[in-house]
Write a protein that binds this DNA or RNA. Structure first.
Lengths: 94, 94
DNA sequence: TTACTTAGTTTATTTTATAAACCATCGAGG
DNA sequence: CCTCGATGGTTTATAAAATAAACTAAGTAA
């Protein structure tokens, strides 16, 4: 019965990470559509994942209308792997 | 990207369910030791699982010092199965 | 009988998730 | 050029959840 990384143990953050696992790059709008989250919620959760170092979040500058692009980091991928391993220990009896 | 049953998507409740999957009967004290939760927290989460119908919780009466015994219900087992299936959809890219 | 331990529950506090309100920019229409 | 609405976000407020602290009641041992 291992610890479950609390940063990943959240439906929306897990969904974000899941998408970034399979896509290597996604912008805010895409993530919003895929996850069906509100913009506010998405923004908050992206920030958390970013400051944990699990993803990068670059906002296309030039003062223009913003475009935020996210990618998974190596640390993020590793954290996901650990999370899965930890989860497995919860389902040995199933 | 399916919904994750919010009742199961909690570390402690998942741990409780996991134990009850593999054991068919466990008392409060045993669950407390295994999960390393505080009594208060455990009590609250057991109550939630009970009122959701995922487990049963019988307190050995006779006015004496209580002994609370928990078991998983069929609904609980089914919910766990669904939860696992839903989780899988989050890790296709891993 | 006083005082400690055990088995819990109830209530209060903190943390987390979520939504609502807001700000800035772009593009279209008058 | 100026409003008006849509787009792309962030900030802040609210609701829900997890956790801990305080309490209750019975048993046990000195």
């Amino acid at each position: 019965m291992q610890e479950l990384d609390p940063l990943l143990h959240s439906q929306l953050r897990l969904a974000i990470m899941s998408i970034l696992l399979s896509v290597e790059e996604a912008d805010f709008v895409y993530l919003k559509e895929k996850t069906e989250a509100t913009a506010g919620n998405l923004s908050v959760q992206l920030e958390k994942l970013t400051s944990a170092g699990y993803i990068t979040k670059e906002t296309d500058g030039s003062g223009a209308k913003p475009r935020t692009i996210c990618q998974m980091t190596d640390a993020g991928r590793e954290a996901m792997q650990n999370y899965v391993e930890a989860l497995k220990s919860y389902f040995t009896g199933l």
